[in-house]
Design a protein around this nucleic acid. Structure first.
Length: 858
RNA sequence: GGGGGCGUGGCGAAAUGGUAAACGCACGCGACUUAAAAUCGCGCGGCUGCGGCCUUGCGGGUUCGAGUCCCGCCGCCCCCACCA
């Protein structure tokens, strides 16, 4: 028998309110300088075709914030778009013979429909897709402006080259030295690439982190480490028998008198030069280049070097020379690609010295060591101390010595203090089709010529084929052949496209205005930026968030906008996890393949073989533990999915998906529905003024309502959504138990239900809108202000105070609020249990914490 | 190797240095039902002689009082990593 009449009809209700909000254009943001703005943004998705649980969590979190701030009176901007360029579209083109543009646009349509079914309060009029010319044309202009501002350059650089796919791979796409799809051994190739000069802002990006108080400490630290500022010195060593010098970088110039050797990287220009006449060296260099860069390879690789035969002169010890090695542990792209080694005070240098029989001269003396006998054995001394064996540095402390030696180097013109960064410039060239064309034309006479502004955008041609390896733009019959804008001679278009991080580095600002003719309306972008709250996964802690910070500074530098930092607040949500199963051979199993045997043990349904329950892991296809949100939303509705996402775990922590938990959320949604639509007592009409008298329970409930308002508001401000849910549940539990015949009870019940609906509005918006209407309101809930807590109802007349004897709880007393300490002490000492535990002793001391606790020390 | 985080019931979790376990999940018992589901009620950290006693990974410390602060271990997780 159908019982739909007394159960909440989710599908119909959710669809109806989604339509109604859309019809009213409720979430359109209007530029209104008179109102305080609030810009909340979730990281936009790659249009893979289907939303996953991570999206559901991300967008639910953002929607709660957006709706809450809206109710609080802010002018809210909450937009959505598509990070639409990228590799999967090209893979689909190759595998399924579907054009990347078609594939992407269809995926966007499918995902847009899915997002709409979640009831998210987006301003869809500002939707953007980065693969469309009306978006990427602006970044072509930005690139040219950056070029003019000296923030772009072209240089040869070593890249990961997949010889099967004929393309460059990002570092993340190289797994144990092999291409992630082809499985081919990746080669290093020297290619001309475009770079954005992110290092020009290294110091600013580092210092800017200080001001990002609403960012997780963890993310700031990760960026700080990534930028990797170190202070040290460059030293120019005279090379014996040559006119040029060897330039090294060190953070320990104070240990210069302990130097035993110099070492250069295998791909250092000097190494290449020497290898020309030295076959052994050439072989060694080739060996170094072959070594993998995977963690395991680095972990196990032996520290090796080869003496080049070259020597350099010690800058301060007349007549002393140091051998120069090529060493496999020296990196060309950090510092100068060359080091000096001080074995006594660096473990790696010490190992190297032992291996090649180099002298170990200690120059830093630990505080209580004897200079006559102090020696370094198997372990380098890296601590503080006083310099010795060091001529003019003798007796100085380490920091002092660093300063003094740098001064001497500088005076002598053979070195200088420098600051070094780990941060590398950002290579943006990709030998890929599905990306934004780099607006450059290569001319044999004029070099790399910018495409004139009037010719922008350089539109990606859609008539390309994917039936041969490599970049389709390169194979296109006509596209790349153009006249040089400068001299008119035949020239060739740049066929590389931008790294897809390029698009996501400015999309947040684009949402402020989507005008055709320019990237941003200056007034609009200055009104809306920065993003007040950005929400997304921790996996973007460095790359996307750092690129965006850099890009925003570069845009500011070029006069596009006025802010330097794009994201004032950042919330990094945890992953969605789900339990995993493995069969007897250790292969992953779908939960649907697992059954229980007669004893309740886990078995494989098809074979009866035993199954082991694995730990809860991040949902992923390979682990077969993915739950598709579409099915959940279809069965339980968006509100249930949203409530589950918010209920159990704090947003920044990982969330375990459980079917039982979803059921729990579903049951609560229905309980709330029944509580409002079938209340224990008939509710007074909407707007009924408060009665004069309340029975004791009703009065208590009335106070609890206001406490809930205060607590939930505070929780939402701090993104403690799980606590907010708990507090509203507490409130509705209380309301369900309210004695109906007490004075004022019906009024309190209405007041409580209205408040609960308002407080839950941002989290389960469809149900709440429905219930708000059912409670008799004509104005929509989304257009109603947030409830205010009455301060006079937040305090009680009396308070329960805990009484301890020697720190252990021995009872409680009911005291008037803010009673004086003496009275509290008297009341506590009057407790029989207190006397009992004092065992006749007089209390030595009594600590009274007003309204909280009395601790009797005896 | 460097940096960071976490450790509280069977599970997810609460707890401005002040009554540990709120809220929920699972489970158990009961009511309603011919029955099941749904719903409602009760119980639910451990031990107990029913007076209580013990309990926040382990060991110390600070404090009248520590899950919370400090020191040292153990375990797990994440990020970076031949960075001079």
């Amino acid at each position: 028998m159908s019982r739909t009449d007394d159960r909440y009809n989710v599908k119909e209700t959710e669809a109806r309110w989604q339509t109604e909000w859309e019809r009213r254009q409720s979430f359109r943001a209007k530029d209104d300088a008179a109102r305080p703005k609030y810009y909340v943004l979730e990281m936009f998705p790659y249009p893979s075709g289907r939303i996953h649980m991570g999206h559901v969590r991300n967008y639910t979190l953002g929607d709660v914030v957006a709706r809450y701030k809206r109710a609080r009176g802010f002018n809210v901007l909450h937009p959505m778009g598509w990070d639409a360029f990228g590799l999967p579209a090209e893979n689909a083109a190759i595998q399924n013979k579907v054009h990347p543009a078609k594939w992407t646009r269809e995926n966007i349509a499918a995902m847009r429909a899915q997002l709409k079914s979640m009831g998210l309060s987006y301003d869809w009029s500002r939707e953007i897709a980065t693969c469309e010319p009306d978006y990427y044309r602006h970044e072509q202009k930005m690139f040219l402006d950056f070029l003019e501002a000296g923030l772009v350059y072209r240089k040869e650089s070593w890249v990961n080259w997949d010889p099967v796919e004929n393309t460059v791979l990002a570092n993340e796409q190289v797994i144990d030295g092999r291409g992630w799809r082809s499985g081919a051994l990746v080669e290093k190739r020297l290619l001309s690439q475009w770079f954005l000069k992110i290092t020009a802002f290294a110091d600013e990006l580092l210092e800017g982190l200080q001001g990002l108080e609403r960012w997780p400490e963890r993310v700031r630290l990760m960026q700080e480490n990534w930028i990797g500022k170190s202070e040290g010195a460059r030293v120019f060593f005279d090379i014996t028998g040559r006119a040029d010098k060897l330039e090294i970088y060190t953070t320990r110039p104070d240990t210069l008198f302990g130097a035993a050797f110099c070492a250069i990287a295998a791909n250092h220009p000097l190494a290449a030069e020497l290898a020309a006449g030295n076959p052994a060296l050439a072989a060694f260099i080739a060996d170094c280049n072959r070594m993998g860069t995977s963690e395991a390879a680095i972990e196990t690789a032996e520290k090796k070097g080869l003496d080049t035969g070259l020597t350099v002169a010690h800058p301060f010890i007349a007549g002393k020379t140091l051998p120069v090695y090529v060493a496999n542990f020296v990196l060309m792209d950090y510092g100068t690609g060359a080091i000096f080694g001080c074995p006594a005070h660096d473990q790696r240098d010490l190992d190297f010295a032992h291996k090649y029989g180099l002298p170990v001269v200690p120059v830093v003396l630990p505080a209580d060591a004897d200079p006559a006998s102090f020696a370094v054995g198997g372990e380098a001394y890296t601590g503080d101390g006083t310099l010795f064996n060091s001529d003019f540095l003798d007796g100085l402390a380490v920091p002092e010595a660093k300063r003094v030696v740098a001064e001497r180097l500088q005076q002598a013109g053979i070195g200088e203090r420098t600051v070094n960064f780990r941060l590398r410039d950002w290579g943006v060239s990709r030998q890929r089709y599905w990306g934004c064309p780099i607006p450059i034309i290569h001319c044999e006479s004029c070099g790399a010529v910018p495409v004139p502004e009037a010719d922008l955008p350089v539109v990606l041609p859609e008539d390309v084929s994917f039936d041969q390896p490599g970049n389709p733009l390169d194979h296109h019959p006509t596209w790349k052949h153009v006249a040089c804008p400068s001299c008119g001679k035949p020239a060739r278009r740049e066929t590389d496209t931008f790294d897809t991080f390029f698009e996501s580095s400015w999309y947040f600002a684009r949402f402020s205005s989507v005008a055709e003719d320019r990237a941003f309306d200056r007034q609009a972008v200055d009104y809306w930026m920065p993003v007040d709250q950005y929400i997304g996964g921790i996996e973007h802690a460095v790359l996307h968030l750092l690129y965006s910070r850099f890009f925003t500074r570069a845009l500011k530098h070029c006069g596009y906008l006025g802010v330097a930092e794009p994201f004032a607040g950042l919330l990094t949500q945890g992953m969605i996890c789900m339990e995993t199963y493995k069969d007897a051979d250790g292969r992953w199993l779908f939960p649907s393949d697992v059954a229980k045997d007669a004893d309740g043990g886990l078995i494989e349904a098809a074979t009866g073989r035993p199954v082991t329950l694995g730990r809860s892991e991040k949902m992923s296809k390979s682990k077969k533990n993915v739950v598709d949100p579409a099915g959940i939303i279809d069965t339980y509705g968006a509100d249930t999915a949203r409530l589950f996402m918010l209920s159990d775990s704090p947003p920044e922590r990982d969330l375990d998906w459980t079917d039982a938990g979803v059921d729990g959320a579903w049951r609560y949604v229905n309980r709330l529905w029944r509580l409002v639509l079938a209340p224990a007592v008939p509710l007074p009409p909407v707007g009924t003024p408060a009665p004069d008298n309340f029975g004791p329970q009703a009065d208590k409930a009335r106070r609890q309502i206001h406490k809930a308002v205060a607590a939930v508001s505070d929780d939402l401000e701090r993104f403690h959504f799980n606590k907010a849910v708990a507090r509203i549940r507490e409130l509705t539990n209380l309301l369900a138990e309210l004695a109906p015949d007490e004075a004022g009870a019906p009024w309190v019940l209405r007041h409580g239900l209205e408040t609960a609906v308002q407080l839950f509005g941002p989290m389960i918006p469809h149900l709440c809108e429905e219930l708000w209407q059912a409670l008799g309101h004509e104005v929509l809930l989304i257009d109603s202000p947030w409830p205010e807590a009455d301060p006079s109802l937040l305090t009680e007349d009396t308070v329960t105070v805990a009484v301890q004897v020697n720190g252990k709880l021995r009872g409680t007393i009911e005291l008037p609020v803010d009673v004086d300490k003496a009275a509290a002490e008297r009341a506590a000492l009057a407790l029989p249990t207190v006397a009992q535990y004092l065992q006749g002793r007089a209390p030595k001391k009594v600590i009274v914490v007003p309204n909280r606790i009395v601790n009797v020390v005896g």
